[in-house]
Nucleic acid binder design. Structure first.
Lengths: 222, 222
DNA sequence: ACTGCGTGTTTTGTATACAAAAATCTTGAC
DNA sequence: GTCAAGATTTTTGTATACAAAACACGCAGT
């Protein structure tokens, strides 16, 4: 089952949905899209399936595929779960972390600082992602790491957005230091709390951000 | 996109995989299966996609679909995450639970007791599932509830299996009482701990069970 | 004018046909 | 007898053809 084209289409559509090129609730026309991508409906529909599985589309039988942007409530819920997962990663990592693993995480944290110093938000974001991914792996639980990555990926655009909040980058960096210190000390409870708060604050900041930004967002028809 | 047939096939295949009718690592032949279900390859492939998304199949490009039974390590990892999710549900539920919600949960717990009294393991299992599902909902976080249900569903056959352990049903019931008491008292910490342990012990018991049972399980070729 | 029904169109779901890649088998050289 | 290269067969991925369900529009009746 070669997802060569289907997978490429999935990625493209994913970006289009995430970046908001498709509005919430919009119906995706199979024929028009297949013409746009110069493929038949078959790989396109496979892409639909995958996107639906990750929650970006809703497939209504005999009706079509509808873009499904998470509402503010769902987003807060997702951040809440993300905070828990990251906290769990921290707790486990504090107990299971090897010297090499800790070294890699410290390195990633330093790279974050460098990016922060240069004021490059994109670089900071990418290093930050690496920092967190290393942490997921350090939990020693591959399933947990995979789930965390999956959710992180879905929250990606919103995390990114909230880095724009004034002073958030610096605050985030401070939190990283707390996290690293807890990991280094092998303090599971402290690592868990630090990480949970680190994410939870993102959810809250995001909530604030949306409150002012998102005044007139049209809700999709069900 | 009418998954009428595709969805039916997915369910059937899901059961066949879960019950072990297909061995781990076995390659599923599209043509043979489509003949067996009297459908074309198209809906069958859609079913494959869905099963791959939930981790029951692995789709190797240009190679085919391979059954993917979780190994013992992955199962323990999944139980570990399940414990965390359920604990989180308990923590949130203890704070957010309404009187009606609490009543429903207490009722479900009682139904569990009834089933336990009658010695009917299947009934106990089904009531137990209801108890837990109510708890997920009571967390007030729909996304969390959905994730919990998804993982519960995937662990279902293994949870069921471990209920066969001697005295486990009674012990499980005692734990339910502790959980309900914590919820009733609105004690978030106690509810979280009780639920996390409730699931964690399942993972451990399961581990024991497998250690003796699973001596000569053939590992699939990668 | 509004509602209910029927026809025609659009669109989804499924089957089949076709292309290309992988697997298998055959044949020949050493 | 073994191994390798080429031909043949399977099998996957994609395109297209077809069936049926949903939708839209118009028309008749009240």
């Amino acid at each position: 089952m070669d997802q060569r084209r289907a997978d490429k289409i999935r990625e493209t559509l994913e970006q289009l949905i995430i970046t908001g090129a498709f509005a919430d609730g919009e119906r995706l026309d199979e024929i028009r899209l297949s013409e746009r991508f110069s493929v038949s409906r078959t790989p396109l529909r496979e892409a639909f399936q995958m996107l639906a599985a990750s929650g970006l589309l809703e497939l209504v039988p005999r009706r079509g595929a509808y873009v499904r942007h998470p509402g503010i409530i769902e987003l807060v819920e997702m951040f809440e779960v993300m905070a828990e997962l990251e906290g769990m990663c921290g707790r486990l990592a504090a107990r299971r972390l090897t010297n090499d693993g800790l070294g890699a995480i410290k390195q990633a944290a330093e790279d974050c600082e460098t990016a922060l110093g240069s004021g490059n938000a994109d670089a900071y974001y990418s290093e930050n992602e690496r920092f967190h991914n290393l942490l997921y792996e350090a939990s020693g639980n591959s399933f947990l790491a995979a789930e965390a990555r999956k959710l992180q990926r879905r929250l990606q655009p919103f995390r990114r957005m909230q880095l724009r909040v004034r002073g958030r980058m610096k605050q985030s960096m401070d939190e990283h230091r707390t996290i690293v210190a807890a990991l280094e000390a092998g303090n599971a409870g402290a690592a868990e709390r630090a990480l949970r708060d680190h994410i939870a604050v993102q959810g809250e900041k995001f909530n604030d951000l949306m409150a002012q930004y998102n005044q007139s967002k049209p809700k999709r028809a069900v």
